[in-house]
Amino acid sequence: MNDDELMGLLEGARAGEAEALTALCARYYPKVLKYMRYRVAADLAEDLTSEVFVRVLKNLNQQHGSFPAWLFRIAERVVVDHRRAAGAKKRTVMKTMTDQHEHQAEDRTDVAETVAAKIDLEQAIGELSDDQRQLVTLKFIEGLGNDDVSAIMDRSPGAIRVLQFRALSALRDLLIGKEVRYGT
């Protein structure tokens, strides 16, 4: 979707056009769901994704600037509010997703090696600090640029680059640790 199409959809959605709001929701729903899968337990991802779009609808008239940055700021606010409400100090991020991959690995031995590598990577993401995991999700899994990530996380571009370096270094160490543990 190019910028003009997005602007058209946003204008239509603000005017209350069903088609524009449906298209906007359908287009960004998979992206927000993907974000949620890496930020909260898998069984909560759909519910919290719904909550994001309800807040988008409530606040659409105040939206300006980059839409993805605005959308993911709302998504992160939903994550924070959920944790606060649940009083969750320790998350069980991606447990369900990892279980699912483990079953797939048992069933499909031909791709077991690839799946195992993905499980390791997803588990390692779950062990990052909260801000590192948020950055990894936004930058690499959602594919956003530094400007949007910087706006969403409310940090300077320089701070984002350092956080990115630390997050990838932490992932490298975690993955090396797993190799040593399993003797691969």
Partner: peptide, 24 residues
């Protein structure tokens, strides 16, 4: 690692989940 992160699979999106959101 960065390129491996970019190639992680997308989650399965259920039509029921999307419709539920539109219902809300």
């Amino acid at each position: 690692i960065a390129t491996r992160l970019e190639s992680l699979p997308d989650p399965n999106v259920s039509l029921a989940g999307l419709m539920n959101t539109l219902g809300r």
